[in-house]
């Protein structure tokens, strides 16, 4: 055999690394499955008529979707960290904060525990340094 053996990525090692990044939930297949209907709900807000119905009665609109109570509550509370815990992804959820007239900066800031002013100030000063938030295990 002279043919070069294909180098393959070990999927288990590949996925396990993602849990080692502080303050980050990578949108893996596992999360994508869990958040399927939450993300599809968010996508439905791309239609004006759906936005109107959602704004008129958020709870009733959410009840039309196959969502867990935790996911529904996270949406009602606009708790984006909790939505991500429920399998949400920020690009899908952007349809929700856009419906609220809010920006990516607002949504991102809301997940950091900082006030909007503090977050905006951090960004103007060059953003969050990667020092110390690259790896939990390696503490770098």
């Amino acid at each position: 055999m002279t043919e070069k053996k294909k180098e393959r990525i070990n999927i288990h090692e590949y996925l396990a690394q993602f849990d080692d990044i502080p303050g980050t939930r990578v949108f893996t297949a596992q999360r994508a499955r869990k958040g399927y209907w939450l993300n599809q709900f968010a996508m439905s807000l791309m239609k004006e008529e759906n936005r109107e119905r959602f704004k008129a009665d958020e709870k009733a609109y959410l009840d039309e979707w196959d969502l867990t109570d935790a996911a529904k509550q996270a949406v009602l509370d606009r708790d984006y960290n909790a939505m991500i815990d429920e399998g949400g992804n920020v690009y899908y959820l952007s349809k929700l904060f856009s419906t609220d007239g809010k920006s990516f900066q607002f949504a991102a800031g809301s997940m950091t525990g900082m006030t909007q002013e503090e977050y905006a100030e951090m960004m103007i000063k060059g953003g969050r340094s990667p020092e110390g938030v690259r790896s939990i295990k390696e503490g770098r």
Binding site: Y80, N81, M111, M123, G127, R128
Partner: peptide, 10 residues
């Protein structure tokens, strides 16, 4: 980074 407590990383 647009999500989680590490949002804002540059």
């Amino acid at each position: 980074q647009l999500q989680g407590p590490r949002a804002g990383l540059i």
